[in-house]
Design a binder for these strands. Structure first.
Lengths: 206, 206
DNA sequence: GTCGGGGTCCACCGATCGGTGGATGCGGGT
DNA sequence: ACCCGCATCCACCGATCGGTGGACCCCGAC
């Protein structure tokens, strides 16, 4: 029997998860928590096998909680279940010691399978997360924007539209779009707003 | 006769400006420079009345050059002429001692008038810049996003579309749009990408 | 010499965003 | 009692963006 603890700050989400695992005869939800600190306490006192961990939570977030659990209760497997799959969420969570990373659009079936896999010590990743990870290894130089790309990103961060950025660099609008596509690919994002965010996180922008 | 020095790293822009002032009988362009350090030197050695200063330049930017000029040649009026009007450009430039702030979409006529005004010690600001400044005084609490607005901005920075952010916060897409409009107003930007940038600059985002 | 990466450009399309001008309800402050 | 800030929601529109699948040129490395 797999002893599961659910950590998520939304009661509604917790309810949905509880229902999901009600059908699984080999999984029992032994506890719930609304933030990271509480989650750590529950996981330890209830002798959890697997913790289903949200990332964005008040007071103590999922990454910090995961890291703390790895330290204080190394036998507990932490399975991240969150809404976001940007690199800035995925990589810290993996580094912190999460054994799996699923997105909240996962089907109930996928969820129960993932919990069983986690209990066996196997890793389960959402497809888009897998891509991010592959991107990290496939391209050792990934995250290295060219000078031109940095210029474009800086202009976008300063409020330029594609047209304005093109004018500022004396090139065509199409080139700006191409540069941005390359930037999205390298940073693992889908739009200019999160590209700017990643730019600041990686200290590419001022 | 007003002695003018042009500081801009693009030769083409310098050329255009030179042409612009060729028609003004009371203004003579006595020198040009391609970066801030050079601009300071020219402004002093050529006894400039007014310096037309670009902000984004290699090696020494316009803000640093303006501050240095105020220090070492307080009689020289610095008139900023740049492409950008985000708060993070405007405020430092004004603080550094610029007497005016124009955008590069200004008409030649506006430019010559502004140079004459600067020579007389009067301030000329581009309309959108004036708005930024007024925003600074009118709202002492400006730049203070509400908790909800910070949540929205954080989600946008993490790559959420409006729809996704709405789902994450359990509210409607229309509310996300409204929050974003408020955020744009408070941060003095026009789109989500530069809102994210301002968020990082003001340390509202992680 | 050719292969790959960087930079530039094109067309087309659907999706999303930004702008505007509202409206409602709640709570705190005067 | 009233007003204002905050949060929520609506509709409509044009502008912009993101996705795709190319293309060309230049240059340096192998």
């Amino acid at each position: 029997m797999i002893r599961l603890v659910i950590v998520d700050d939304h009661p509604i989400v917790r309810g949905g998860l509880r229902d999901t695992f009600a059908d699984a005869e080999d999984i029992v939800v032994v506890g719930e928590a609304g933030d990271g600190a509480e989650g750590i306490e529950r996981a330890r006192s209830l002798a959890a096998d697997v913790v289903l961990m949200d990332l964005r939570m008040p007071t103590m977030d999922g990454v910090a909680a995961t890291a703390a659990l790895r330290e204080r209760a190394p036998d507990v497997r932490v399975l991240v279940l969150t809404t976001f799959d940007s690199e800035s969420d995925v990589l810290p969570a993996i580094e912190a010691g999460a054994i799996g990373y699923l997105l909240k659009d996962a089907l109930p079936d996928e969820l129960t399978h993932a919990v069983r896999a986690a209990a066996r010590g196997e890793s389960v990743l959402a497809p888009s997360v897998t891509q991010h990870l592959m991107g990290q290894v496939r391209r050792p130089g990934a995250g290295t924007l060219t000078d031109r790309e940095k210029q474009v990103l800086q202009l976008v961060a300063n409020g330029s539209s594609n047209r304005e950025a093109a004018a500022a660099l004396f090139i065509g609008e199409a080139s700006i779009k191409t540069h941005l596509q390359h930037i999205y690919g390298k940073l693992g994002v889908r739009d200019r707003a999160s590209a700017v965010a990643e730019g600041y996180r990686r200290r590419l922008l001022t």
